[in-house]
Amino acid sequence: MPKLLGNETFGANLKRIRLTCGLTQEQTVAKLQVLGSPISRSTYSLIEMGRGNLFVSDLVGLQMIFGVKYEEFFKDISTCRSSKKPE
């Protein structure tokens, strides 16, 4: 199963979306588990911190749970891989 590599901006977006929906990490993980994901709260926490990777199937589940467009997860993410900004 393909994974998305962790990113601090992605994690911050994920946290913002979750909080906007009024859910705790525990509630979010419970909803993902009902959808068939074996994700733990500690793994989910690492993803929100930008230090964990996310299965694509879990992103699909999060989109369903939060009811947002996929673009919201990727808001303000640079197209440049390095910390330097393109000129």
Rank of each mutant, 00 (worst) to 15 (best):
residue 14 L to H: 10
residue 52 G to W: 00
residue 17 I to R: 12
residue 23 L to W: 03
residue 77 I to C: 07
residue 68 V to M: 08
residue 18 R to Q: 01
residue 29 V to Q: 11
residue 66 F to N: 08
residue 58 D to K: 00
residue 25 Q to K: 15
residue 45 S to N: 09
residue 43 T to P: 00
residue 39 I to K: 04
residue 85 K to S: 02
residue 38 P to Y: 03
residue 25 Q to T: 07
residue 41 R to P: 03
residue 24 T to E: 06
residue 64 M to N: 13
residue 62 L to M: 08
residue 67 G to W: 10
residue 18 R to V: 05
residue 4 L to T: 02
residue 5 L to S: 04
residue 63 Q to H: 10
residue 2 P to D: 03
residue 17 I to C: 11
residue 36 G to N: 09
residue 29 V to T: 07
residue 86 P to F: 09
residue 18 R to K: 10
residue 43 T to V: 09
residue 7 N to P: 02
residue 80 C to L: 10
residue 69 K to Y: 14
residue 40 S to Y: 03
residue 71 E to S: 13
residue 12 A to E: 12
residue 32 L to K: 13
residue 30 A to T: 13
residue 7 N to Q: 04
residue 64 M to K: 15
residue 36 G to W: 00
residue 84 K to R: 14
residue 9 T to I: 15
residue 71 E to I: 06
residue 70 Y to R: 12
residue 64 M to R: 15
residue 62 L to G: 05
residue 8 E to W: 10
residue 75 K to G: 07
residue 67 G to E: 12
residue 1 M to Q: 14
residue 28 T to F: 02
residue 70 Y to T: 13
residue 86 P to K: 14
residue 70 Y to L: 06
residue 36 G to E: 11
residue 26 E to T: 15
residue 13 N to C: 02
residue 3 K to N: 04
residue 60 V to S: 04
residue 34 V to I: 15
residue 41 R to I: 01
residue 44 Y to C: 03
residue 28 T to V: 09
residue 56 V to L: 07
residue 53 N to Q: 03
residue 16 R to N: 11
residue 34 V to P: 03
residue 82 S to V: 11
residue 3 K to G: 07
residue 86 P to V: 05
residue 5 L to F: 11
residue 64 M to Q: 14
residue 77 I to K: 05
residue 76 D to K: 13
residue 48 E to F: 07
residue 6 G to I: 02
residue 2 P to H: 07
residue 6 G to D: 00
residue 66 F to K: 09
residue 14 L to C: 08
residue 43 T to Y: 04
residue 33 Q to K: 13
residue 43 T to I: 02
residue 15 K to M: 11
residue 42 S to A: 09
residue 44 Y to H: 04
residue 77 I to S: 10
residue 66 F to W: 01
residue 82 S to N: 15
residue 39 I to M: 04
residue 79 T to K: 15
residue 15 K to A: 12
residue 47 I to D: 03
residue 78 S to K: 13
residue 33 Q to W: 10
residue 1 M to H: 14
residue 50 G to M: 01
residue 8 E to L: 07
residue 45 S to E: 06
residue 81 R to K: 12
residue 9 T to R: 15
residue 16 R to K: 11
residue 75 K to E: 10
residue 15 K to Q: 12
residue 58 D to Y: 00
residue 85 K to H: 10
residue 68 V to T: 12
residue 53 N to V: 03
residue 59 L to E: 07
residue 72 E to R: 15
residue 82 S to C: 14
residue 50 G to I: 02
residue 36 G to I: 00
residue 36 G to Y: 00
residue 24 T to C: 13
residue 16 R to W: 00
residue 18 R to E: 07
residue 23 L to I: 06
residue 41 R to E: 09
residue 7 N to A: 04
residue 49 M to C: 09
residue 42 S to I: 06
residue 27 Q to W: 08
residue 48 E to N: 08
residue 58 D to R: 04
residue 12 A to Q: 14
residue 10 F to I: 00
residue 36 G to F: 07
residue 7 N to F: 01
residue 57 S to F: 01
residue 5 L to W: 10
residue 3 K to P: 00
residue 54 L to K: 09
residue 85 K to E: 01
residue 66 F to G: 05
residue 8 E to S: 15
residue 87 E to R: 15
residue 27 Q to N: 14
residue 72 E to S: 10
residue 56 V to N: 01
residue 21 C to G: 13
residue 48 E to Y: 08
residue 51 R to Y: 03
residue 78 S to C: 08
residue 56 V to H: 03
residue 34 V to M: 13
residue 36 G to A: 10
residue 83 S to I: 11
residue 22 G to Y: 02
residue 79 T to P: 13
residue 55 F to L: 05
residue 26 E to K: 15
